[in-house]
């Protein structure tokens, strides 16, 4: 069974609505950027409140964690082609460089294996400068697909 390369517009809208309905994602300000060819991307405009420390460095690694959790879980639903509840089982994040303090942080995720119950997802968080991507973190994660629970959005 192959999934359509471009999801129908109503599915995109549903993913976007689902994202907006999540209080934590709204609090952070995460937005859906695109979803096609099994690749989903989100963005997060950075602000001072999200900084890890007052003395140095960029946004808290927890912000990067939340962004990756969001992109990865939505990537599972994109692959599923329907809004079914998923739960993060585990996520390993490599922090490749210190996170930025300002600008916009992006994340892209792909569900590269979807079984009956488990989905495997890889995600990356990055910034864009002069049209070039610069990776901040990479994530490998697995999700439980809870088929009996549809999500309404």
């Amino acid at each position: 069974m192959s999934s359509p390369a471009v999801p129908p517009p109503d599915q995109l809208l549903a993913l976007d609505r689902l994202l907006r309905l999540s209080p934590h994602n709204s609090f952070l300000g995460i937005k859906l950027e695109s979803a096609k060819d099994n690749r989903l991307s989100v963005s997060l405009p950075l602000r001072d409140e999200l900084l890890a420390s007052t003395s140095e460095g960029g946004v808290h690694s927890g912000v990067v964690s939340s962004l990756l959790d969001t992109s990865c879980s939505l990537a599972v639903m994109l692959k599923l082609g329907k809004l079914i509840r998923v739960a993060t089982l585990d996520m390993r994040i490599d922090y490749l460089r210190s996170a930025p303090a300002e600008g916009t942080l992006f994340s892209r995720a792909t569900c590269y294996r979807l079984g009956d119950q488990i989905a495997f997802v890889r995600g990356v968080a990055y910034t864009v400068k002069d049209g070039k991507e610069d990776k901040v973190a990479e994530a490998a994660s697995s999700f439980l697909v809870i088929h009996q629970q549809r999500v309404s959005a």
């Binding site: 309905l21 927890g62 996520m91």
Partner: peptide, 24 residues
């Protein structure tokens, strides 16, 4: 707080919020 809820329907905390607590 409401702002750490990831999934309103399931009333579940967002994994990233829990991860932030663990990292902190």
């Amino acid at each position: 707080d409401q702002h750490i809820i990831g999934d309103l329907g399931a009333a579940a905390l967002q994994g990233g919020a829990i991860s932030t607590l663990l990292e902190s």
